[in-house]
């Protein structure tokens, strides 16, 4: 759509997109610092001592020198700010400390699992978008029909259903009763992961994630389309005798999709939450399991890193949504 404004406007667009991105980044960096510092303070304020945790019951037999040595090495008795600074300087270089519960460096724990989560989330999100656009358009087009009613009705019901309950239902029907698809993990037995096998294992979790996220998109697209049907350019297109499908795809959808871009960014936290629960139901080898383990074992190094990372993803999503919006709507870009 930027093609409509060639020349200087395009250059202006690029510049103002850069400005939007900079402004968002200027907000994101302090947020990440504040969030990580707050988590750090919370962890320090909690009554858990990582050294005692490390020794467990063996602390009774451990020599005081060894305990003191460890306290010294880990720096647990230094002021919070000094410890935070140490953590931060290491974190910037990619060293996020060690996970006590999984006995591995945090970066290794996350590195092993992140790919699986990203795979699940991205495919699920894409499917939810497609579903949202298709069903939302259909429902608006056939407003008031049985099709519209059943689409909107099931959207309301799905909005109210907990995603893990949905997951269990799907698991029971398709994996346990019908035995059409595998219901857990990414491989069957001990065979190495293959593209086809993983794709087959992905079907159920991805579908559940998508249909749990789709209702918002469906209702949003439907509502915006209905509003755009009364706008001048759509009425104009209709009065020129264009058939419905061209009016919808060429005129109505274009304008009503603009606010949709903002919704994409706004839905990211829910998407991450949904992915955590879906992963748990389907024993997906992503970060969900590690998150729950970390929480149960008060493993703040891991939990903190995961939380800060998720926050970073959300902020990045908002940035992308803003940039897309500016790209799609030259008015925004020109305003700066």
């Amino acid at each position: 759509m930027t093609n409509a404004h060639p020349g200087p406007a395009t250059r202006g667009t690029a510049r103002s997109i850069g400005r939007i991105a900079l402004r968002r980044l200027a907000f994101a960096v302090p947020v990440l610092l504040v969030v990580s510092f707050a988590l750090f303070v919370l962890a320090k304020a909690s009554p858990f001592d990582p050294v005692e945790r490390y020794f467990g019951v063996r602390i009774i037999g451990a020599s005081p020198e060894r305990v003191a040595q460890l306290r010294e090495n880990w720096g647990v008795d230094e002021p919070v700010v000094a410890q935070y600074w140490a953590w931060l300087t290491h974190a910037v270089t990619g060293d996020l400390g060690d996970s006590l519960s999984l006995q591995q460096p945090v970066s290794a724990v996350i590195g092993d699992r992140l790919g699986w989560t990203v795979l699940l989330v991205s495919v699920g999100f894409a499917l939810a978008l497609v579903l949202g656009l298709l069903l939302g358009t259909l429902a608006a087009w056939r407003q008031g029909s049985w099709l519209d009613r059943s689409i909107t009705g099931s959207c309301y019901a799905l909005e109210a259903a907990p995603v893990f309950w949905l997951g269990l239902a799907v698991l029971y029907v398709f994996a346990l009763q019908l035995r059409w698809l595998p219901g857990g993990g990414v491989t069957t037995g001990s065979e190495p992961p293959s593209v086809g096998g993983v794709a087959l294992h992905m079907v159920l979790p991805v579908t559940v994630l998508a249909i749990s996220q789709a209702p918002w998109f469906v209702l949003f697209v439907r509502q915006n389309l209905l509003e755009s049907f009364t706008q001048d350019h759509v009425i104009g297109a209709r009065s020129r005798g264009l058939p419905d499908h061209l009016v919808v795809s060429g005129h109505a959808l274009r304008t009503s999709l603009l606010p949709f871009l903002t919704l994409l960014g706004a839905r990211l936290p829910e998407l991450i939450t949904g992915a955590l629960l879906v992963e748990t139901v389907f024993s997906w080898p992503g970060i969900a399991r590690a998150t729950v383990e970390a929480a149960l074992n008060v493993d703040f190094a891991l939990l903190g890193a995961l939380t800060v990372m998720a926050t970073g993803v959300v902020l990045l999503g908002n940035l992308l949504a803003d940039v897309l919006y500016a790209l799609a709507d030259p008015r925004v870009a020109l305003d700066g």
Partner: peptide
């Protein structure tokens, strides 16, 4: 705004882990 950027469930998990 900063707190709203942390996914709710994750923040909830952190708080439960502490308490």
């Amino acid at each position: 705004d900063a707190i709203a950027s942390v996914p709710h469930l994750l923040l909830g998990i952190v708080i439960v882990a502490i308490l």
